[in-house]
Nucleic acid binder design. Structure first.
Lengths: 222, 222
DNA sequence: GCAATATGTTACCAATCGGTAACACCGCCA
DNA sequence: TGGCGGTGTTACCGATTGGTAACATATTGC
């Protein structure tokens, strides 16, 4: 769990710290700057709704209400719904890349350890997407327009991620690093997808087991 | 490529046999039953548009026009857009299951061969989803309502598919069939997802290679 | 050639959606 | 005290959507 700004990002999905912001403030203390500034409340609410109901399945009105504000204020912070989507996606991507940096810092000079820890982190994140799958993956499916800014953000992120895995596989001394990297990446993406129909526990555990097997094997035959 | 009824299903996506049905018939011969009956033309057009533009991104009017007919006729064959979606999904699922049966028939008593051939078929299908990923996966992302009939159809299909892979792994004598089955399934789903950001050639080839490696290994140590 | 059936056409409905304008309100700081 | 910036409220707009009704037209079977 990593804090980004004032937002708490938990397991790949931004979640509101209090379940119902809109209820807490009625007539009194109308605007006591409720700990979290409006803009971030909007982002949190949008992320929650986007993930649960689909990007196209939720209107800006619903987002504003869930954030405890109104549409007008939302449009004072975001030029359009598309920009809101983009910022939400950017937040998730940033968080994931921070996690990679953290991974590298904690296992400096130990690519095997990085890969193993990485599989464990992915596995533990699977719980939050048991019903709706990966938010980034769903976003790709929901934004077919190849020119949508959010799409580019996701695309570039995934390519950076793949590159990083490839680099790790090279450093780890895998005999065919390109093959291993693609295998790891298929496992990563596959786990996010499978969790919807097979369940998180099995998939998470087996993801970890497979990565462990591969890494142990690479360690021994080195 | 397997024919289902009068529809040609190619590489997981239904495609029209003629690129532009609507243009071919203007004033003369208004309705010569243009080889393909209306209902199926609608299904084909809908599938094409759903996949390219997203289910929620295309209206029934556009579907009718692409099918060379009109909205009224569409609603004479389908009670609602949701039912159209469901039938489209059901068609893809049926096709995939036919493919599994074909696989079993061609490699009777040879689970290793089935798994290998399966990876090759998946790999060759990847080309048709380089830009938009798996139609079934996207459908799940675009239909968050857990009670949507199409969602159930996909869910049940994936579970049957997973079961079949598990059975194959048992027959193939893998030491931990549950683990191997999940590995295969993650690879399958992952390949469909990765193809969007890494490209079809690499992913397809590596999918085949990995499955071959696993199967050869199981064959030897048996 | 007639009737039945299938398809096309037009017009329409209610609901929703993204986005904007105008104005009222509240709290803060000088 | 007064003004100013941030926020809430209401009402509205145009476009699009899923879905329906009524009627015209064409095709087919007899």
């Amino acid at each position: 769990m990593l804090p980004i700004g004032n937002i708490i990002v938990k397991e790949g999905i931004m979640t509101s710290m209090q379940t119902d912001i809109s209820r807490q403030r009625k007539k009194s203390a109308t605007n006591k700057r409720s700990a979290i500034p409006v803009r971030e409340r909007i982002l949190v609410a949008a992320g929650d709704l986007f993930h649960r109901q689909g990007i196209r399945g939720v209107g800006v009105d619903a987002i504003a209400e869930a954030a405890g504000t109104n549409k007008m204020t939302l449009y004072r912070y975001f030029d359009s719904k598309d920009e809101l989507i983009e910022e939400w996606v950017r937040g998730m991507v940033t968080h994931k890349e921070e996690d990679w940096k953290d991974l590298a810092a904690k296992h400096r000079g130990d690519p095997h350890g990085q890969l193993q820890d990485w599989s464990r982190r992915v596995s533990s994140r699977l719980a939050s997407m048991e019903n709706r799958g990966s938010a980034l993956g769903n976003a790709l499916a929901e934004l077919p327009d190849p020119n949508h800014p959010a799409r580019r953000v996701i695309h570039e992120h995934k390519q950076r991620e793949h590159k990083r895995v490839l680099k790790l596989c090279k450093e780890a001394g895998f005999p065919d690093p390109a093959l291993s990297a693609n295998l790891f990446y298929m496992l990563l993406e596959g786990a996010h997808s499978c969790v919807q129909c097979i369940g998180m526990r099995q998939i998470g555990e087996h993801l970890v087991q497979v990565v462990d097997l591969m890494v142990e094997n690479a360690r021994r035959t080195r």
